[in-house]
């Protein structure tokens, strides 16, 4: 179902496929500029959309720098701080990172940055694999409302929102819909 299908006026398009592409391309450029050893980078996507975004960023980096960046999956479900408080558990998926992590820069990739709790859980998960040289954060949309002292290193789009609003990201592989970002008012 498309967001706001019953009430189309409630969903506002924020980014279309082209806007997402150019945002990811710009993030790829920034990653290459800011890391003196791009070969040490691991792009660790948070399932499901973060994994898809990480693979797109890896393609752009290959175009820019002729280098194959390693990608991984970092599942946060078993590191969340709200287990036992929800009627429905988040689905856990297998994490996968190239080892060892020493000397490497792990870049967490997610679609939307909101409270920061998912990113905290992702950092905990990464630490259980080893001790990377540094961890950075790339997100497609930063919608504000942080509950933890966390800030992104690479942002596709800054989008100040009200707490009642929702950001819906749709990606081709994950959702079988054209790439798009929508803002939904409740």
């Amino acid at each position: 179902m498309k967001p706001g299908e019953q009430n189309p006026s409630a969903a506002v398009p924020i980014m279309d496929a082209e806007a997402i592409r150019s945002a990811l391309r710009r993030i790829a450029h920034e990653i290459v500029e800011r890391n003196t050893h791009p070969e040490r980078i691991v792009l660790a996507g948070i399932p499901s959309r973060g994994v898809e975004l990480a693979s797109h960023i890896a393609v752009f980096i290959r175009e820019i720098d002729k280098i194959d960046i390693e990608t991984g999956v970092i599942d946060v479900a078993m590191h969340r701080d709200d287990v036992g408080t929800r009627a429905e558990l988040p689905v856990v998926r297998a994490s996968k990172l190239p080892l060892p992590l020493d000397q490497r820069t792990v870049i967490i990739v997610d679609d939307v940055l909101f409270t920061g709790r998912t990113v905290r859980a992702a950092m905990d998960a990464i630490n259980s694999f080893g001790r990377p040289a540094r961890i950075q954060l790339a997100v497609l949309v930063d919608r504000g409302h942080r509950e933890l002292p966390i800030r992104p290193d690479y942002v596709g789009k800054n989008l100040p929102t009200a707490t009642g609003e929702q950001i819906q990201v749709r990606l081709q592989e994950t959702d079988n819909e054209p790439d798009a970002v929508w803002l939904e008012r409740k």
């Binding site: 479900a77 078993m78 297998a94 259980s128």
Partner: peptide, 14 residues
């Protein structure tokens, strides 16, 4: 997913 945890350096999740 939990089998993968057994291959980590720290084999414990919270």
């Amino acid at each position: 997913a939990f089998k993968q945890v057994g291959t980590r350096e720290i084999k414990k999740v919270p």
